[in-house]
């Protein structure tokens, strides 16, 4: 231990020091992660919504082009083997990939954090059982688990959503439980008890709203993972029915083309997945930074 460390302990005693300790470069990066991530997500949502009312061609009709048409003015992203318009299919695919990911995440967030709050605030046998279950469950890789279950219960959009949300629950449970446990004995939780709140209300109305920061930050990361798994299942033929213009399906359908030079059939759906997951990760990273208690007032 050097004398400098002795003289200047890691936390300076002034409160101002802590508020301002964050390096400027980090803040700058956070701001831009947030902007780019958010802008990209808004773009994806807009495209998905637009596809409900307008696409250049009917995405489900084959034979609009000749098959394997290269990108051109008529077909900006080319056509696939059956001559369907890639751009139209890609736009419609945003509905599936985004919709599945967001729905699954919403379900996982709700159930997972509710269970986490109960485990964290009330503790006891439920907490013990929940945590053991989480540990056992998390020993399996998420993708492998999703594949096995979808294989067993059958493909289809509902099953994919349910499996994805199930895979997400343990993470939310853990996060919410840790947040609540840290705050359970805070004085405002005690004060809320004395104000006459029953225990469940203290947990859900007072403690949970003060814990949403880290949970929301994680939803973004989780959504990226869910989108990736959706596409992977589609690619492996385990997800939606093969003709659905889901991006994973589309990559699988374009596989043959890659060998023979029709790169665009697989490339553009891949790019769409990359863009979606990338922007969600960026967003999640930025949100996690913002939810950092040192930054909160």
């Amino acid at each position: 231990m050097s004398s400098d460390e002795v003289m200047a302990p890691p936390s300076l005693p002034t409160s101002q020091a802590q508020v301002h300790a964050r390096p400027r470069r980090r803040r700058w990066r956070t701001t831009w992660s947030l902007r780019i991530g958010l802008a990209a997500l808004v773009f994806y949502v807009a495209v998905a919504l637009l596809s409900l009312v307008w696409t250049p061609y009917d995405p489900l009709v084959p034979g609009i082009g000749d098959g394997y048409d290269a990108p051109s003015l008529a077909f900006p992203l080319g056509t696939d083997r059956l001559g369907s318009d890639m751009l139209s299919r890609l736009m419609m695919g945003a509905r599936y990939d985004l919709g599945i990911a967001l729905t699954a995440v919403a379900i996982a967030l709700t159930i997972g954090s509710a269970l986490g709050v109960v485990a964290g605030y009330f503790g006891g046998a439920f907490d013990t059982i929940a945590m053991r279950a989480v540990e056992i469950f998390q020993a399996f890789p998420g993708l492998l688990f999703a594949m096995l279950v979808v294989q067993a219960v059958g493909a289809g959009i509902v099953n994919v959503i349910l499996v994805l949300s199930f895979v997400g629950i343990p993470d939310y449970l853990r996060l919410a439980r840790a947040e609540i446990q840290a705050k359970r004995n805070w004085q405002y939780a005690e004060a809320a008890r004395l104000a006459g709140n029953p225990r469940w209300r203290v947990a859900f109305r007072h403690l949970l709203p003060n814990s949403v920061g880290p949970l929301l930050a994680f939803t973004s990361i989780n959504a990226a993972f869910a989108a990736l798994v959706t596409a992977s299942l589609g690619f492996l033929g385990l997800g939606l029915s093969p003709n659905t213009p889901e991006w994973g399906n589309m990559i699988a359908r374009g596989q043959d083309g890659v060998m023979t030079g029709q790169w665009w059939v697989s490339f553009f759906p891949g790019l769409a997945i990359l863009g979606l997951t990338g922007s969600l990760y960026l967003l999640g990273d930025a949100l996690a930074d913002l939810a950092d208690p040192r930054r909160r007032r």
Partner: peptide
């Protein structure tokens, strides 16, 4: 009072 004293040792917060 503390800020002044920290300045004596040159360990005032970086935003000062």
């Amino acid at each position: 009072k503390s800020l002044t004293a920290l300045s004596v040792l040159g360990i005032q917060p970086p935003t000062f």
